[in-house]
Design a binder for these strands. Structure first.
Length: 575
DNA sequence: GCCGTTTTCGGCCCGACTGTTTTCAGTCG
């Protein structure tokens, strides 16, 4: 069982947090954090890289010492240094860092002054009004801490895995299961198949010749932490990651209906069962029945056909109009990864990317892209060494030169320019007008009221060079709420100006949401699915964006970067 | 701990905001 990237990254992150609380050098802490980030976002499995003797110290943010630690994790599953650190710092203390306004210094202080060791201790101390007595804390801080620590404990959403993380766990499990000859067919159902942003548990269906042997094989999976139940038709395990996996053995004649049933969503299933009822049919996981006779169930197509529906892609099964669309033969022909011709947001060393422009462009070329936009940050984003007008000029020159040098791909001269608080853009129009693509994003002053935030973005859109609104809501899944903004109004104005929305494909963001993708499409707005790559491996994140786009009903036509450059160029013309 | 077209040592992302103070530390993006 190879160690997963996420596990390696978690150990490094954990160590960083521990060191941070202990008051270690902040740059050392940051080094561990950025190494974790690198590993987490790799598209290859770092264990395999180590096995194949690839030089991982060539990866960004990973030097010789970090490479050794990673090797240790890959080979032993853990890190001695972290074990030692855990003896010094209570484990529950690290969870306190998740509470906003609590950083390493305050956590350390809470531990020293009040002997707080975990969230429960923290909550109690806040309730008892002990925290306000500590120097540097006060009534307001204490109230905020209490509010958040209560929310923290009840926050079930945190237990769900992001789709990308679920995939990392799921693929080796699937490979393992497929090794058994007795298994004829295997599919993952549930929210994973629907490509939801986060996954609660995993439902796997199989057709097999020997269910006892299959179940035995399943519960013997190396990464199993706990066998919850084991039967002939259904078994349930918990993996070391905490993910619960159910395996169901299904008969051939019921496979399609079982797949429909366990793929869900619940709301979708309720609707189709009702339609069946109206036709005197009954749909369950075993088939479609007329009285006691099974009339369909072998394939999903068959099941839908019985109730006069066309096959509905799993990503659409959310009861958001897909059933009517199917009945009227009006389902979208969903965009696929193969339709993508380029990437419209990426960063280089000029700002906070990890590779040079040449390296990024060549990596994009290897993907077979026709075009690739380099969109480094503008000056306001100081933490990313954003570009001012002068450096932007140089960047443009470099893009032009590189365009002559590198054949087979077109570099789009571009920028990710900040939308400032007053709604102006962070670079002069003089320079923006030289660019092929201008992506505009909010990074600062995220906590404005909805009215002010909306006004800010609408004002920015008046700028005649504004092409694409980058990561429109700024949310980070399970971590940061979206900014408050009236999206309907923004879409309306975007439509008027011929401005497009980004669907940021980063698995942590997936911003726009599926819901807003659908609304955008209905408003007639095009979507750019962009990876926002900060390293070469991030270019592989496109699939997550495409998944989300499919959940948002997007067709090839709706997606800007499925179009040829000659078309795209016209589509970027402003009204 | 990482990194290097000035550096193998000495930098490293820096400014705004908040609540606590009464001049600033801690946190955040």
């Amino acid at each position: 069982m190879p160690v997963l990237n996420r596990q390696v990254a978690n150990i490094l992150d954990r160590l960083a947090d521990t060191l941070d609380i202990e008051g270690a050098n902040e740059f050392r802490v940051r080094a561990y954090k950025s190494a974790a980030q690198t590993i987490r976002s790799l598209s290859k499995n770092v264990s395999e890289m180590v096995e194949n003797n690839e030089d991982i110290s060539k990866l960004p943010n990973i030097g010789d010492s970090m490479a050794d630690k990673i090797k240790e994790i890959v080979e032993t599953g853990s890190l001695k240094q972290l074990k030692k650190a855990k003896k010094r710092i209570p484990e529950g203390l690290i969870d306190l860092l998740d509470i906003s306004n609590l950083g390493p210094k305050r956590v350390q202080k809470l531990n020293q002054e009040l002997d707080i060791k975990n969230i429960d201790d923290l909550k109690k101390a806040a309730k008892d009004e002990k925290i306000r007595e500590i120097e540097g804390f006060g009534k307001k801080t204490e109230e905020k801490i209490l509010e958040e620590s209560e929310k923290q404990i009840s926050d079930k959403e945190k237990d769900r895995l992001k789709w990308r993380d679920a995939r990392e766990i799921t693929e080796p499990l699937l490979d393992y299961l497929k090794k058994l000859d007795e298994i004829d067919q295997i599919d993952i159902a549930g929210s994973y198949r629907r490509c939801k942003e986060t996954i609660g548990d995993l439902d796997i269906l199989v057709i097999c010749e020997d269910s006892k042997k299959t179940m035995e094989h399943f519960v013997s999976y190396e990464d199993t932490d706990d066998v919850i139940s084991k039967g002939d038709t259904r078994s349930s395990i918990r993996l070391t990651s905490g993910l619960q996996v159910d395996l169901r053995v299904v008969s051939k004649k019921s496979y399609g209906s079982a797949l429909v049933y366990f793929t869900g969503s619940k709301a979708h299933n309720i609707k189709i069962r009702k339609i069946a009822g109206d036709k005197d049919l009954k749909i369950n996981e075993y088939g479609v029945f007329k009285g006691d006779d099974q009339v369909a169930g072998k394939t999903e197509e068959e099941v839908y056909e019985q109730i006069d529906l066309k096959y509905i892609e799993p990503e659409l099964r959310e009861d958001r109009g897909e059933i009517d669309a199917s009945r009227n033969d009006d389902l979208p022909k969903l965009v696929t990864l193969e339709d993508i011709r380029g990437d419209l947001q990426s960063h280089t060393k000029a700002s906070d990317g990890k590779y040079t422009m040449e390296e990024m462009v060549n990596a994009a070329k290897e993907k077979g892209y026709d075009y690739f936009a380099i969109t480094d940050h503008s000056q306001r984003v100081t933490m990313a060494r954003g570009l001012n007008e002068k450096r932007m000029e140089e960047q443009i020159k470099k893009m032009e030169e590189l365009n002559k040098e590198i054949k087979g791909i077109r570099i789009l001269k571009a920028v990710e320019v900040d939308i400032l608080e007053d709604g102006s853009l962070d670079l002069e129009d003089e320079i923006l007008k030289e660019l092929d693509v201008v992506v505009c994003s909010v990074h600062y002053n995220r906590n404005l009221s909805q009215k002010k935030q909306t006004k800010r973005i609408l004002k920015a859109m008046e700028n005649p060079y504004f092409n694409i609104l980058g990561h429109p809501t700024g949310r980070i899944i399970q971590k940061r709420d979206p900014i408050e903004v009236n999206m309907e109004e923004i879409f309306k104005t975007a439509k008027d100006y011929n401005i497009h929305m980004e669907l940021n494909a980063s698995p942590e963001r997936l911003d726009l949401s599926d819901f807003y993708c659908k609304t955008a499409r209905e408003t007639g707005i095009k979507i750019a699915i962009s990876t926002d790559a900060h390293m070469k491996s991030h270019l592989d994140n496109m699939i997550y964006g495409v998944n989300q786009a499919r959940r948002g009903w997007l067709e090839k036509e709706d997606v800007l970067n499925t179009h040829k450059w000659s078309n795209l160029k016209k589509m970027l013309k402003r009204n």
